[in-house]
């Protein structure tokens, strides 16, 4: 059912130790930087804003360190299953990267072309990256969805998402 159980040794990838090492590094960073948090003179005996960062940093160093040591000794994390997930096929990194780029593009476009068009762009890009064909059908679905959301927010909830310069004059898109 799961090709990678925790105890099963497998090929050492770059990502596994990098993830555990990243957590370890975050912990070290937290411990180092905690000392430079300004500590106001507090009432006698009260602990200030540094204690919790030290504690969290320590937790991260210990758990990250243990995980890293285990990974280096050959333990593999068990990738999460799911209804639409096929773990036997390997990871398609390109799709994940393209989807991330689509979200980034959406964030940058909201201010330029407004929410409805940026939203439609995100939906269309996401669907096409995931295999929707033909692309124009995804675009039509995306436009309908984005404008429907805009209308629900403006009409039903009374909150206006920024319609953007192109659609500025369209009154019914405003809350």
């Amino acid at each position: 059912m799961n090709p990678t159980t925790p105890t099963q040794p497998g090929r050492l990838s770059f990502g596994e130790p990098a993830m555990a090492g990243g957590i370890l590094a975050l912990g070290v960073f937290a411990l180092v930087r905690a000392g430079s948090i300004a500590e106001p003179v507090t009432a006698a005996g009260a602990i200030g804003p540094r204690t919790m960062p030290y504690f969290v940093g320590g937790l991260l160093v210990v758990t990250g360190g243990i995980t890293l040591a285990r990974v280096l000794r050959g333990e593999r994390g068990e990738a999460e299953g799911g209804e639409d997930v096929d773990l036997s096929g390997g990871t398609d990194w390109l799709t994940a990267v393209l989807l991330a780029v689509a979200v980034l593009g959406h964030a940058l476009l909201i201010g330029v072309i407004g929410w409805p068009l940026a939203g439609a762009a995100l939906f269309t890009a996401g669907a096409v990256i995931l295999g929707a064909r033909p692309w124009w059908r995804a675009l039509v679905v995306g436009l309908i969805m984005a404008f429907a959301i805009q209308l629900v927010f403006a009409g039903g909830l009374g909150v206006s998402l920024p319609p953007g310069p192109l659609l500025e004059g369209v009154a019914f898109l405003h809350g």
Binding site: L130, G142, L161
Partner: peptide, 19 residues
């Protein structure tokens, strides 16, 4: 279709963060 489903999830997630 799964491509519409996950594109929709991304759209609603972006909306949730933006809102």
């Amino acid at each position: 279709p799964r491509h519409y489903l996950y594109a929709g999830i991304l759209l609603f997630a972006a909306l949730g963060a933006f809102a």
